[in-house]
Design a protein around this nucleic acid. Structure first.
Lengths: 214, 214, 214, 214
DNA sequence: CATGAATGAGATTTCATTCAT
DNA sequence: AATGAATGAAATCTCATTCAT
């Protein structure tokens, strides 16, 4: 019985209560309205603090994103969330199907609960080079090596066709991302049968990547 | 067969020269800084027009967004992207591979030239329901029926496995989109061999979608 | 009959009417409350414009002082006012007394009418290095050479004792400045007999600077 | 004759250590940035105390100014500057030269060590009538009577020309002030020969004030 | 049509001052 | 007495929008 919810480490070790409330409010508002569209007044209101308080703790609004919320996400939240992914790629799955099953099944639930957060950063990363660097570092160092190794292992075993591992990974993640996008961002209100959809994706990707046998 | 409508697709058939310059500038700035982060002054400057001129043509700044992404879908994606796409889906390709080849090969270059527009849409769609509606209508009415029909035809022919056509289409477009994203937005400066990558995607998706033979 | 008031070139060739009003209001408020103590709201109110208008014309409040009001004063107003001084030093006065008479008599009236303006810059120069540079340039290039030459001429004629010309000039200007300070800044409301006071200063300085005869 | 009151004149007899540090910091910052341009946060930081502490001792920021420049005049300039000055004016110097020698020689070094305080006063006096009143009272009551008496004595002895004593004093102090200003504020980094300059000023002022002999 | 100066509402930021600890 | 987090009023600055020319 794993303790999924062992600590709401959602938003971290901000020293004071108010600091935490500000960070949480910021994430909330940024997620709803985007960074540029979020007035600090709104953040202050939701955090239940005076506007000045925000600036006592975070020099500028940009600092709140680039210097605090960003690093927080990329250095604490994301790595924590990537650990299971790492584990998945490190585990010597017997088949591609098994790998994809771990990958898709376990992550769909996660994506759902963190869609907002992921979306903010997906959005803002393109406007703020500082965030991109952070993202590249985190993903490139934590995930890519293990993922590439896993793909190469399957290729050596003759279970995945010869192709650049990154191209293979792009198919895997692209399929999942396309699903997540339509599922959680574009048409969240439609009825979805996650089980079936995931099943389908696993099958398609697995078979698509199987080497051509003569 | 000459293309009657091959005016430089330099951004829709905006009536006047200035209107066109405004739209081009808007696309440029929106893509760089996001809608909320783009001052109309900056757009005016880049368009080489007075700030007031913008508001002569587009009542509000938001109209400019809708007037950019709207026309994007109605004049660009439609006549120049969707019609060919429609044609592709309507054409009775002999194989899934043939369909995907038409789809991927012809569209990759095109995506490149409109990467910015696509990106604006991707960024802003979550903040502006109007955009979503626009997209749904356009795509849902113009493209989806033909696309679904095409998929069902292949399924009837036993060339694509049984599954909701929309799920199939998501795999097709998701794979292409994931490639476009990494190719044009995230790492445009890396050396890419489009031919090989497209070839790989076609193969994987084709084989992934093939029905399971006993 | 000279036209003393030929043009209120007081504050210059600012292109628009509003710009001029802003500059005048700024000078007025800066003079009353100092730069740091002057809210832009107050300047706007006195200029009869919206606060935003100020920032349309002058990027920042500091720019209004450093980039506009300062250069204006040091490059237009002050040089214009220094011309008569230059003329005085260039004129071959027959005696030190004659020189001082020109200097003190003519300048007291001027100081009176420009006390405010002079005071702002005397104040702010010490906080803003940029202004100091401007001041040094203007004074050092326009006035000092002629003044030094005049003193040296008198020394050569045996009418002023041997001493560094700058020390001599410091006595001349220091005496006048001390008078101006008490007269216009500290106790402006007391009754003053400018004629007598100036007469006294001229006499004292003249005789003080006379060479020691054996 | 030992100096009973020679506690390090490190800024008034502020009761506590922290009070002293606050005052010193205030003087430092006010001198650098002016009163209005000096945030209390900066003062607190330099004093090494919490911001709240300042307000425990000085109800408002303005009190800090009045409490700085006030005590400056009442405890520093008075007991340590004015008393010697009083002594100088009370002493029956045999000649004007002797008086000026006492005045200039002894006070120039002293001015140096308190240049900052003097500068704050010079800067802020025009914005804060309280400071002017303070100065008038202090100087007018403690110094002026003795100074005027001294001048009148010299006039009676035929050593200083007939003129309002205040005019005479203005020449004396104005000359010294002009020197102090150029020496300590405007060009402190230049090489100065205080001895020679003071000698020159003494001579000029002495001879300038000598009565006209027929 | 086009301009660009002007606006004013609102966004960000600063800062003197208070107050619970 | 001292702290420093918190405040909120005011200051600086931005920007979509209007309007006279």
């Amino acid at each position: 019985m794993t303790d999924v919810n062992d600590r709401p480490d959602d938003l971290l070790s901000a020293t004071t209560e108010k600091q935490r409330r500000i960070l949480e409010a910021a994430v909330e508002v940024f997620a709803e309205r985007g960074f540029a569209g979020s007035p600090t007044a709104e953040i202050a209101k939701r955090a239940g603090v005076a506007e000045g308080t925000i600036f006592k703790h975070y020099k500028t609004k940009k600092d709140l994103l680039i210097g605090v919320v960003g690093p927080l996400f990329f250095r604490l939240v994301l790595p924590k969330q990537l650990e299971p992914l790492q584990a998945i790629f490190r585990h010597p799955h017997p088949s591609v199907e098994a790998l994809l099953t771990s990958l898709y099944r376990e992550r769909v639930a996660y994506l759902h609960s963190h869609a907002r957060l992921v979306r903010i950063f997906a959005q803002e990363v393109s406007y703020h080079p500082e965030l991109r660097t952070l993202a590249e570092q985190t993903l490139g160092q934590m995930l890519l090596p293990d993922a590439v190794t896993a793909i190469e292992r399957f290729q050596a075993l003759g279970l995945i066709m010869q192709a650049p591992p990154t191209s293979v990974l792009r198919i895997m993640f692209g399929t999942m991302a396309a699903y997540a996008l339509t599922r959680f961002v574009l048409f969240p209100e439609q009825p979805w049968d996650d089980g079936k959809e995931v099943e389908f994706m696993i099958q398609v990707v697995t078979r698509g990547l199987t080497p051509i046998t003569v």
